[in-house]
């Protein structure tokens, strides 16, 4: 049994307690113990149930200011987007052009904090203190009509903000959901073979020879 299978088997059997790990697994002796300070420096993730959210708090009105200063130039004054993603709006998820926004689509409010905290503002990611991230999160939730004007976000209040689309996800992979056959002969009537759409003459296709096409419009 390879060592990874062994480890997997132990996990599956629920036998992989700390004691078993120490006994069964030889250590290569490589790596340094991560100190609590080191872990704290990089341990930035926050989960829907609030685990991982930092201390601090921020209000919708503080968030308005911080948002206008750090985010509005790309995402629009009210989060309406443009060249960059739209952040607010109660767009519908059905029809021809569904709108997947924080308000219409995102299942968990804490994900908004986590993402802004790790990845935004785009030109200087992870540069804002937790108070500002809380405040901006509160502001965006407010723009999506998910919290009132007096909302203050912190590690206790934020996970309690329920998102309208929380129940809209199926977290179990439905595949294989298609059941095509491996038929080899006369698999469909010849008359049924019709081209429904073609990309012939497509003007949205950049060239694939010569210099790079950098400004072809949609």
């Amino acid at each position: 049994m390879s060592s990874s299978r062994k480890l997997l088997a132990l996990v599956a059997a629920g036998l992989f307690s700390s004691a078993a790990a120490h006994a069964a697994e030889p250590s290569l002796g490589l790596g340094q113990t991560a100190t609590p300070e080191q872990i704290a420096a990089w341990n930035i993730d926050a989960r829907p149930d609030g685990v991982g959210l930092p201390e601090g708090k921020g209000s919708v009105s503080d968030g308005d200011d911080a948002y206008q200063e750090n985010c509005a130039m790309c995402h629009g004054t009210f989060g309406e987007g443009g060249k960059y993603p739209r952040l607010a709006g109660e767009g519908k998820l059905t029809g021809d052009r569904p709108e997947q926004t924080v308000g219409s689509f995102w299942p968990y409010s804490v994900t908004l904090f986590d993402f802004i905290n790790r990845a935004m503002p785009y030109p200087a990611p992870h540069s804002l203190p937790p108070e500002k991230v809380y405040a901006i999160t509160a502001y965006i939730l407010n723009q999506n009509n998910l919290v009132g004007d007096d909302f203050v976000a912190d590690k206790n209040s934020l996970p309690k903000v329920k998102m309208p689309n929380e129940g809209g996800f199926i977290w179990k992979d439905p595949r294989p959901d298609t059941h095509d056959s491996d038929c080899m002969k006369n698999c469909r009537p010849v008359a049924s073979v019709k081209i429904s759409t073609t990309a012939e003459g497509s003007r949205v296709t950049p060239r694939t020879t010569g210099p790079l096409d950098t400004d072809i419009p949609q």
Binding site: R47, P48, L93, F169, I170
Partner: peptide
């Protein structure tokens, strides 16, 4: 963790508005 990359993105919206994740 239900990160941005597994909720807002990399999920599949069906015609009925429900989405597949993971």
């Amino acid at each position: 963790w239900f990160t941005h990359e597994e909720t807002s993105k990399y999920t599949e919206l069906r015609a009925d508005g429900k989405a597949y994740g993971f």
